[in-house]
């Protein structure tokens, strides 16, 4: 994705490393790079998170607004994903250069969140047919170091965990139109249950083996990858979205192996994420920290 030029020799080096199950940075094929996650750092958003996965940097802000529900689904709220590839991340994102990648990322997230078993939009309904919450998930890509799909989905999930939807205390009916009263107390709010929210795992095929969490260099060596959206429900993993990316094709057995690898990686990743989020909340609680800046 980021424009990195590698020579044939460098590519062969990476390929051999993957074959030996010993990648350039010392990881095995099933290891992730270290991550840094921070929530609640954008003061104007209802929920926010910043995730740094080695060199990939993603900032997610969530805004909640009141909207009219769709006439086909009067008892459901709305969620919309928007990805912006900043030109800071890579020079080729300048102008409309990042549009295609941004669309693909947003589309994958929308597909993964579409099933009501993964994300129940009924929770966002205020008055059926009249008022509902609309969540705008704005994702900003600050730096591109490979494996954008995973980073974006993790950050989105963390930001949704952090989102506080104000509690609606009263709804007055005035001439058939509903009038809402929002609670005065800024701490009186509801949270979004994140138990079933899907995360995405990219499984990258390099040579004959599959790896998770490819770095930007490794992505250059691969011609086909599979993005697996995994949602956990009652201890079982389900795929909520699977699609192939890259310009190559796969054998059906490879494809199935990739999905299985993605599922097992997603399971441990998901556990760690939930653990980290709970830990952060316990330590900081509702105290407002002094937020300095995003870039370190």
């Amino acid at each position: 994705m980021a424009n990195i030029s590698l020579s044939e020799a460098e590519k062969t080096f990476i390929l051999h490393g993957v074959e030996e199950d010993f990648r350039c940075d010392g990881r095995s094929r099933r290891d992730y790079r270290p991550m840094e996650l921070e929530t609640d750092l954008v003061s104007n958003a209802s929920g926010s998170a910043r995730l740094r996965l080695a060199n990939t940097d993603v900032l997610v802000g969530i805004k909640t607004e009141i909207d009219k529900p769709n006439y086909l689904t009067p008892d459901q709220g709305k969620i919309e994903f928007f990805v912006d590839c900043s030109a800071n991340a890579a020079p080729e994102f300048e102008g409309r250069g990042g549009e295609e990648l941004a669309l693909e990322l947003a589309d994958t997230l929308t597909n993964a969140y579409e099933s009501p078993k993964a994300f129940d939009l009924k929770l966002l309904c205020i008055l059926p047919g009249q008022q509902c919450w609309k969540l705008f998930v704005d994702i900003l890509i600050l730096e591109c170091g490979g494996n954008l799909f995973d980073a974006v989905s993790l950050a989105a999930k963390a930001a949704l965990f952090n989102t506080k939807i104000p509690r609606v205390t009263a709804a007055l009916m005035d001439a058939g139109e509903a009038e809402l009263l929002i609670s005065d107390d800024p701490y009186d709010c509801t949270r979004i249950p994140i138990g079933n929210l899907p995360i995405l795992v990219t499984v990258c095929k390099i040579g004959d083996s599959c790896v998770v969490d490819p770095s930007a260099e490794e992505e250059e060596c691969s011609i086909a990858s599979v993005v697996v959206g995994v949602s956990k429900r009652k201890g079982k993993s389900y795929t909520s979205n699977v699609h192939t990316i890259g310009e190559g094709s796969l054998h059906k057995d490879t494809m199935h192996n990739c999905v299985l690898l993605g599922l097992s990686a997603a399971e441990s990743l998901n556990n760690e994420l939930v653990k980290a989020l709970k830990l952060e909340e316990e330590r900081i609680g509702s105290k407002r920290r002094n937020i300095v800046g995003f870039l370190k």
């Binding site: 597909n111 579409e114 099933s115 078993k117 993964a118 599979v226 949602s231 079982k236 993993s237 389900y238 795929t239 909520s240 979205n241 699977v242 699609h243 192939t244 094709s249 796969l250 054998h251 059906k252 494809m255 199935h256 999905v259 299985l260 599922l263």
Partner: peptide, 21 residues
């Protein structure tokens, strides 16, 4: 014998996905 594109949406177990594919 290659798959150029596989696209799935919904909520499926991996075994079902394999069978449907």
């Amino acid at each position: 014998d290659q798959i150029t594109e596989c696209f799935q949406k919904g909520y499926l177990k991996p075994e079902t996905l394999k069978e449907l594919t």
